[in-house]
Write a protein that binds this DNA or RNA. Structure first.
Lengths: 229, 229
DNA sequence: CGAATGGTTGATAAGACTCAACTGGTGTGG
DNA sequence: CCACACCAGTTGAGTCTTATCAACCATTCG
């Protein structure tokens, strides 16, 4: 982790990218920016650990972060794969509970950190802010809902189909935001099974593998696979 | 669904059971109670359907409700088994989004419904209220987190062990709050597999089946099973 | 009584996991 | 510069858990 010291304008620009701060006035935003610090982190670095007390809100401006916890068996279970711009585990932070999981950097990232009390202070003057926070939590809730739906879906192929469709809601080109083994874990699959599932989809003509990523060749075919199982 | 007309005191008493309303003053609470109505519902009745717009907050005072959605395959997936007193799908209600899943009554229940706008109006005067709501959402988030952890756990036996341990954090006696096939579904298992997993635990001496429910005979043994897989 | 529901048990089959081998790319240190 | 280890990804073969299908029992309810 390397701390940078960008200008206030730069910091404000970073913050403005987040939906959460849209309701803040310009002075409020730069006030927050003033309290915040900017860091870069490389692959493999640890953002936080489960159980540590959450003192600052981490904002992922650019890069990728994985959120995971350790199962009793000792295995890792990835529950989020975040790409910037995104808040990181904001629910736990705002509720004042310790981090519920571990966060590791997956690829070179730019992060902004804001002390918890500074943010909390803001909510007093901004009644909409808690509602925005709830909105964020609600999307997490929906993500989890989808994850559960996905884990309940028996077939590996259809899990992958769901993932691909949601990863690229409109454009046919998918650049995976994490290594395949992480995505496999997120989907509750082994890397081998994930690889084989992709192959099945290629053979069926639903997708094509390209150097840069994956291309959806036949969206409706992919959608029909969901219904199968 | 049969609508009752209890006294204002009775209604207020029901509401007071919920954590959410703890910060409200007596007049506020009875004001809310005045707007609310009380109903009873029998097994099999529908509380709401996925996609319907959420106009009132349902409070389950007594009884059992299942929350589920339909997978693409047409199968049901149970995501919550609620016992009163409990809020039902409050996150969706407060966010103003349509019901994200279906809710059916599992056993004879007593319900209170409060129009959405009346609750929202309250939050203006009670700045803590949104935070309490967030608290509720946060617990759901944690429930989902646990569900995902559970679904990721491979062994059926350990899934059941987790369920039993969390269902009875202290006392050894467990009265299942839903039919076994619903619990099996909630755990991502077939009813047959659930039954067999219980049998394994009985044979190992971890639990015992009784007429009224299940008794934990050897808690530490049960806990050790979690670690196995 | 007959039907429906919830639960248990047995036999079989399918799907994913496991283990192992192999590839290509990347980074490191002698 | 090369040998080496390491990591991500792929493929193959065998195993194992769970789903599936079927039969059966108990209870409840009309």
């Amino acid at each position: 982790m390397k701390t940078l010291s960008p200008s206030l304008e730069i910091k404000t620009k970073y913050l403005r990218r987040l939906h959460l701060f849209h309701s803040l006035s310009e002075p409020e935003l730069s006030q927050i920016a003033d309290f915040s610090y900017v860091r870069t982190a490389d692959r493999g670095e640890i953002l936080f650990r489960q159980g540590e007390s959450a003192r600052e809100l981490h904002i992922l401006v650019r890069g990728t972060v994985e959120i995971f916890f350790l199962l009793e068996s000792g295995e890792k279970k990835v529950i989020h794969l975040l790409s910037g711009p995104s808040l990181v585990a904001e629910a736990a932070l705002f509720m004042g509970s310790p981090w519920p999981a571990d966060a590791h950097i997956l690829s070179e990232s730019l992060l902004v950190a804001i002390p918890r009390d500074k943010i909390i202070a803001l909510t007093a003057a901004n009644p909409e802010l808690p509602w925005r926070l709830m909105g964020g939590m609600f999307s997490r809730l929906n993500e989890f809902r989808n994850t559960i739906e996905n884990l309940s879906r028996k077939s590996a192929v259809s899990r992958v189909a769901v993932y691909l469709l949601t990863a690229a809601p409109d454009c046919p080109q998918i650049i995976l935001n994490a290594p395949k083994n992480k995505i496999a874990n997120y989907l509750g699959l082994r890397a081998e099974t994930f690889s084989r599932a992709l192959r099945v989809l290629v053979n069926q003509g639903a997708i094509a593998m390209e150097e840069e990523g994956i291309r959806i060749m036949n969206r409706s075919l992919l959608e029909s696979i969901l219904g199968e199982q």
